[in-house]
Amino acid sequence: MTQQQRPVALVSGVGRRAGIGAAIVQTLARDGWDVGFTYWRPYDDRMDWGRDEEALAAVSAAAEAHGARVHAVEADLALPETPEEVFAAVREALGDVRVLVMAHAESVDSSILDTSVEAWDQHFAVNARASWLLVREYAKGFAGPHGAGRIIGLTSGAVVNNLPYGASKGALDRLMKAAAVELRDLGVSSNAVDPGPTQTGWMDDNLATYISEHTPLGRTGVPTDCAELVAFLCSDRGGWINGQVVNSDGGFNAAR
C-alpha cells in the first residue's frame, strides 16, 4: 500500500508509550493506516504515573517505521471547542478521517459519598461530552465510501469506587449505540470496546496477581490485546460488527 493510498485514522488519548492508545496507533500503522493522535500532558502530570517525555517521539517513530504519516495534536478535550480544532488539524495534515478511535479518558477514583461536583463534571466533559463532539465532528466531515467508516470508543465496566469514570463511560456506550443507527446513511459502524483490566503501569504486584488469578486465561491484559481487536474492527473483515459493546478481557467479566 503506497503512502497516497493509506486511509486516515484519528486516535485520541495517546499520552504514554505504555498506554492502550499508543498500541492502537502502532497497530493501525502496521495495518496500513496514516494516523493522527491526540495527547494531553497536564493529565499525566497529575496522575501517579507522571509524564512520559519520550512518548510523542517514540509513538510517532514506531508508526512511521511502518510507512505511516503521523500527526500529533496536543488537545485538552475538557474544552468544548477542542474536537473541532483536532479534526481541522488532522485533516489539514493527513486528509479526511476514515476511522475515529477514542482512547482518551479522565479517570480518578472516587465513590458516591466522596465524589465532588467538580470531579463529576470533569469526567463527563472529557469522557462523554468530548466523545459526542468528536463523533459529531467526524460525521460532519466524513467523505469515505459507504461501509468504510468506523467509530470505536474504549469503555469500561468499572464503576464501584470509580463512580464518575464508570458513569461517564456508560454514557459513551449509549453514544456508540446511537451512532450505529443514526449514521447509517454514511455507512459508518460504531462500537464500544471494553479492554478489561489492562496493565499499563497502574497495577501494583498484588493487584496484578489478583487480576491474573481471576481471569480464565491466567494473566492481565496488555495494550496490544485491545489494539488487535480495534484493528480488526477497523478492517474490512470487521465491518459487519455494529452497535456492540465488545469485551477484550480474557474472560475476566465472565468469571466475576
Score class of each variant (00 low, 15 high):
A18S: 14
G187M: 09
L233T: 13
G95Q: 09
V159H: 06
G67I: 13
G19D: 05
A78E: 11
G250Q: 05
S248G: 09
V159Q: 11
H214V: 11
P7F: 12
V8G: 09
P83D: 08
P7T: 10
P164Y: 12
L172S: 07
T155Y: 02
R150V: 15
W240H: 04
A55V: 00
G147K: 06
A61P: 05
G144R: 07
N242A: 02
E137Q: 07
G95M: 10
A89H: 08
A139Y: 09
V14N: 00
E53M: 00
A18K: 08
T224F: 09
F232Q: 04
P195T: 12
A65E: 11
T220N: 04
V8I: 14
W120Q: 03
S168W: 07
G147R: 07
S107P: 03
V159M: 13
E74S: 15
D249M: 10
E64Y: 08
T198S: 01
V160D: 09
A63H: 07
D31T: 08
G50C: 05
T38K: 01
T115M: 15
G170K: 04
E81V: 15
Y43R: 05
F37S: 00
V117G: 04
A57V: 14
F232P: 02
T2E: 13
G19V: 06
W120K: 07
P197C: 14
Y39M: 03
A128E: 12
Q199D: 15
G157Y: 11
S190M: 02
I20K: 07
G201N: 01
W240I: 03
N191H: 05
A22Y: 13
S248F: 11
E64S: 11
W240D: 00
N191P: 02
V181L: 14
D96R: 12
L100E: 05
E228T: 11
A105T: 14
C226F: 03
T2M: 13
D236S: 04
A158G: 11
C234G: 11
C234T: 11
H146M: 12
A180P: 06
L183Y: 13
H123K: 01
G95Y: 10
T220C: 14
G67Y: 09
G50F: 03
W202Q: 02
A179Q: 02
E85L: 15
